[in-house]
Design a protein around this nucleic acid. Structure first.
Lengths: 236, 236
DNA sequence: AGCATTAGACCGACCGTCGGTCTATAATAT
DNA sequence: ATATTATAGACCGACGGTCGGTCTAATGCT
């Protein structure tokens, strides 16, 4: 009697349970950051006990690892079609990737904003880094293969596909800070300038990629016009 | 009576105390990482009490902040002379910076190794990121000024000095992973291959900088020959 | 079919440790 | 003498993690 807060014993399949735990963890980590989310927060939201949690994950750290892997895999699954798109040549595929005709277009901007706004917050460096680590490991061979292919076809000129792929993956991380700055500035009311800065940075980024691949400046287009406003002005 | 372990009440000047605390914190953070170093570890080693610690720093986090700032300032003080070296032209200064004649040379390799080996360890991401944040903020305007100057003098071609400086500072971070991989491989016995990989990566990095600035490949020299072996083979 | 056994999903009280607070007090400055 | 600053260390609540044990559904056995 009275035991209002007691947890009922509900049994679910391991797949469902661990997926639920990952879902909750993702939501909470993104909201508050990894350090500021407690295991108790997670189990409260997921509706199970401490014991059950540690039945599924050896530690809070292991949960982070698993989450990073899941997010990285999902993100890369989205990108893979562009890399393998046989209707495009090497430059076309890079354009799709590094801009891209799919990810950074105006329609998707609102969703992107929601994701980026949290991942880029400074308290989430650890989370971000863990995701990026896995994502990079998965993406590196794909990008390298594309660079080698494009290089062999004479589309561009890359002395060391793996090293260059690695650098391209590194340089894109500039947008963790750039996006964060832009979002903060936009929140502060200066949407126009923030949007302009962001688009300019994307344009410059495209030029950087061009130069790294010995393409003429402007070959890779990293922004659609209006992206900045669409992204920053999107309703939260 | 018996109080054998009791701390004597020792009074020192605030500057000395906080410097001592920073020294201890630096040593411990680098050894074990930020999270795995406790405030008790620090005060035990520094030989003072909890109360005294919190008299000097508002939190463990504040200590990290202060340490990151100190390290970043010190590192940049080393670099500044090269940036302002009036005996060199813009390319010469960049060469000194991004390679360079001072930092990546063979004589200094052993010391570099000690520093890098710890900062690059994965458990130190937070520490690394905090240091880099401050270092970047300090370095950005200097690099940007150099790029603008070199651009105006026609030494190279940079459409947006600040954005490009930002990207150059970003892309150098590739060496957190590269160095870490090389160190691990060298520890594993394969020193020759590790050294070769490291030097190749530095060479490619130099080419990347060349291309970003529209210089002919090979203008910027990011390694001295033999650096890899000197760095990786240095006695720990 | 009916019963015994077992694997493993689940519970929550409990533990040690951590960052941080607080009160007391010794040293120094005024 | 008094105020201020610099210490000391007992103490606190919250945290990640452990542990002994419970419950259930499937499996094997008669």
């Amino acid at each position: 009697m009275l035991e209002g807060t007691e947890l009922a014993r509900v049994i679910k399949s391991p797949e469902v349970r661990s997926a639920e735990l990952l879902d909750c963890a993702q939501r909470l980590f993104f909201q508050r950051g990894y350090d500021d989310t407690t295991v108790n927060d997670i189990i409260r939201e997921a509706g199970l006990s401490k014991g059950a949690f540690y039945h599924y994950f050896a530690s809070k750290e292991a949960l982070l690892e698993a989450l990073a892997a899941r997010i990285a895999r999902e993100s890369l699954a989205e990108l893979e079609p562009m890399l393998e798109d046989t209707s495009l040549d090497a430059i076309g595929r890079l354009n799709a990737l590094f801009s891209g005709s799919q990810r950074l277009n105006v329609e998707l901007a609102p969703q992107l904003r929601k994701t980026f706004a949290v991942v880029f917050r400074p308290e989430n460096v650890v989370l971000f880094h863990r995701i990026d680590e896995v994502a990079r490991e998965l993406a590196l061979p794909m990008i390298a293969r594309l660079l080698r292919k494009g290089s062999e076809e004479g589309a561009f000129e890359v002395p060391d596909p793996i090293a260059f792929a690695d650098m391209l993956l590194q340089i894109r991380l500039i947008f963790r800070d750039v996006m964060h700055r832009a979002l903060r500035q936009a929140e502060g009311g200066d949407l126009e300038e923030a949007a302009h800065m962001l688009e300019e940075r994307l344009r410059i980024y495209g030029i950087a990629v061009d130069r790294l691949l010995k393409l003429p400046d402007g070959t890779i287009e990293a922004v659609e016009p209006g992206f900045g406003r669409a992204f920053l002005g999107a309703q939260s």
